[in-house]
């Protein structure tokens, strides 16, 4: 890369740098493009033109085939139910915890927070087998509820840590004024603290949703039966199956990409605002 330094205006050096970066961007994006191309081809078209030519038409056969074979609609619904429930439940739990810790001044709060943070860095492998064993004992194995419970707690541990830092800076005068007006702690939480910290809460909600959507390890262990699987688990397990041909495999990849990119586009604004929040994880 040539780096013509510090001249104002875009000289030839400037264009060279730009070109290099655009080439890199194309390389980064090419898997998305190639997968999309091939998902819309017929097997015959693929055999004739190879993987790199754009599709001749808009053949949905491979996608529909794959969709029906894995009951993809059901997988999407499972992912939605699990991620959505976890996101909402974990945000509520985080707010309650952080409120109690940050404003209620529980004794030993620093240690509780450190414990939560350590819990967040622990590898799930070190929890997996006992969780698997315990959930079998209480009859929750292979149920969405088990996954929802586990991720709600894990995400809420992080959320509590983050929110108690935010709520720690919360101006105490407002709360004092509220309590002078006769508002109980409970009312102060719902009518003052929650509305004021709404931006942080919405960032957390979206992150929890996407993090849970992207999880692989624990859902792989807990959701054994086909009709409970989430999107990443269903796709990951099918990978490498012999009966999948080229177009169908790329259709499967495309079906995994589409929801993720859709969330990214929908939540883009909140995400870029909150990306530094995510950096702490």
């Amino acid at each position: 890369m040539s780096r013509a330094a510090g001249r104002p205006g875009a000289g030839p050096g400037g264009w060279a740098v730009l070109a290099a970066l655009v080439v890199l961007a194309v390389v980064m994006l090419s898997p998305f493009v190639i997968v999309t191309f091939n998902a819309f081809k017929t097997p015959a078209e693929y055999a004739a033109g190879g993987p790199l030519t754009p599709p001749q038409g808009f053949h949905l056969d491979a996608i529909i085939d794959f969709w029906n074979r894995v009951a993809f609609g059901e997988k999407l619904w499972n992912s939605f139910v699990i991620s959505g429930t976890v996101a909402v439940a974990a945000v509520v739990l985080s707010v309650l915890n952080a409120y109690a810790l940050g404003i209620g001044r529980v004794r030993g709060r620093l240690w509780i927070l450190v414990l939560f943070l350590v819990a967040n860095t622990l590898p799930q492998e070190a929890l997996a087998y006992p969780l698997y064993y315990l959930s079998k004992e209480v009859g929750l194995y292979d149920s969405k509820l088990a996954v929802i419970l586990i991720f709600t707690v894990i995400q809420a541990a992080f959320g509590t840590y983050l929110l108690s830092a935010v709520l720690g800076q919360f101006p105490g005068e407002i709360l004092e004024a509220a309590s002078l007006d006769g508002a109980g702690r409970w009312r102060a939480l719902w009518t003052i603290v929650v509305p004021i910290s709404r931006p942080t809460l919405s960032v957390l909600l979206i992150f929890f949703f996407i993090w849970t959507w992207n999880e692989f390890f624990l859902p792989l262990i807990f959701l054994i039966s086909n009709d409970n699987q989430t999107v990443p688990v269903a796709l990951g397990v099918l990978q490498g199956e012999k009966m999948m041909d080229a177009t169908m495999s790329s259709a499967s990849a495309l079906l995994g990409i589409v929801p993720a990119v859709a969330f990214f586009l929908i939540f883009q604004r909140t995400l870029t605002r909150g990306i530094t929040v995510g950096a702490i994880k």
């Binding site: 692989f216 995994g256 990409i257 969330f263």
Partner: peptide, 10 residues
Amino acid sequence: VLPVAVAGVV
């Protein structure tokens, strides 16, 4: 933005 398992599939 991809789930890492989906990146693997790609």
